[in-house]
Simulated assay, not measured.
Amino acid sequence: MPYFTTSDGTEIYYTDQGTGKPVILSHGWPLSSDAWQVEVKLLADNGYRAIAHDRRGHGRSAKTYTGNDMDTYARDLAELIESLDLNDLAVIGHSTGGGEVVRYAAQHGAGRVTKVITAGAVPPLMLQTAANPDGLPIEVFDGIRAGVLSDSSQFYIELTEAFFGANRPGSAVSEGAKREFWRQGMLVNLAAAYDCVTAFSETDFTEDLRALDVPIFIAHGDDDQIVPIKDAALKSIELVRHGTLKVYPGAPHGISGAYQAELDQDILAFLAT
C-alpha cells in the first residue's frame, strides 16, 4: 500500500489507480478514501489516473493528535500532489473533503488545478455567526462532539440515518451501505474525529471560493440533512466566478444509489469538457 510522509512526519495513505489526466478525490468526515472506491474505478476505467487519500487521523493514515485543521489538511494534500508531480489536475471533494479541495485549489493549486468538483460540501461556512445568521448553531456541533466522545460506535450507527436519508419515506439505502459508513468511521482516531468537527464547521471558505479562477462544479442534494443546501451550495455558487450548480432533488448527504449513479455521470461529463 502506498504511503507518503508529510513535512511534519505524518504518514498519509493513498490509492493510485489508472493512467491519464490525474484526479484527486477527498473524502468526508469521519470516512476514508474507501468512500470513493466506486468513483476511483469509474475514473480509471474512463482513462483517468484516480488518486484518493486518507486524511490524517482517518482510515489507514497516521492517528494524529495535532494538525487536525483545514489549513493542515490542505497542506498535506499539496505536499502529496507535489510529491507525485501532478499537473493538469482535477480535484473532487465530498462534505469536509469539499472544503479541503477548495482550500487547496485556492491557496496551493495555482498552475496545477484545472477543475474543481464538490458534492455536499461544507463551504462557505456551516457555523451560525453574526455574519452568517443562516448557519447552524454551535449546539449542533457540540452535540456531534459529545456523541463522538461518549460512544462513537453508536453515534456513527445513528448518524447513518440522516447521512443517507434512511429516515425518509421510500429510502432505498442498503443496510450494507450504513455498515460500511460505520466501518470507516471506526478507523478514525478519536482526537482527529473530535477536532475535525471544528475544522469542517468553523472554517470560513468565503475568500477561497472567491479566489478560485478555474471552473467548479457544485453538486448538492436538496434533502441533505447534514450540510443543508441553503447554507452551502446555494451560497457558494454566488461566490465563485466560473461555477456550475446542480441540485439533485430528494438526494441526501451520502453518495449512494440513484444519486451516486447520476453524480458519477455528471463528474465524467464535467471532466470531459
Rank of each mutant, 00 (worst) to 15 (best):
I218T: 04
L159D: 05
D223H: 13
M186D: 09
I157P: 06
Q225L: 15
L159M: 14
I157G: 02
R145Q: 15
F155D: 07
F163R: 08
F155M: 15
V227Q: 05
Q184P: 02
E139D: 11
A232V: 01
R145N: 10
A162C: 06
I237N: 07
E161K: 15
T160W: 06
I157C: 04
G143C: 10
P215T: 09
D142G: 00
D204G: 09
S152F: 13
I138A: 12
T160P: 00
A177F: 04
A162E: 10
A199K: 12
R210I: 00
L190V: 14
Y156I: 14
V240M: 07
V240T: 13
C196E: 07
K246Q: 13
V188T: 15
A131N: 09
Q225W: 00
S153V: 06
T203H: 09
K178G: 02
S236T: 09
S171W: 11
A172W: 00
N132M: 01
L239F: 10
E202C: 09
F217K: 08
D142A: 15
Q225N: 10
F200G: 08
W182P: 00
Y156K: 07
I237F: 03
I237D: 04
V214L: 08
I218C: 05
I144A: 01
T244S: 12
A192H: 10
V247T: 15
T206L: 00
H220G: 13
L187D: 14
R168H: 09
P215H: 11
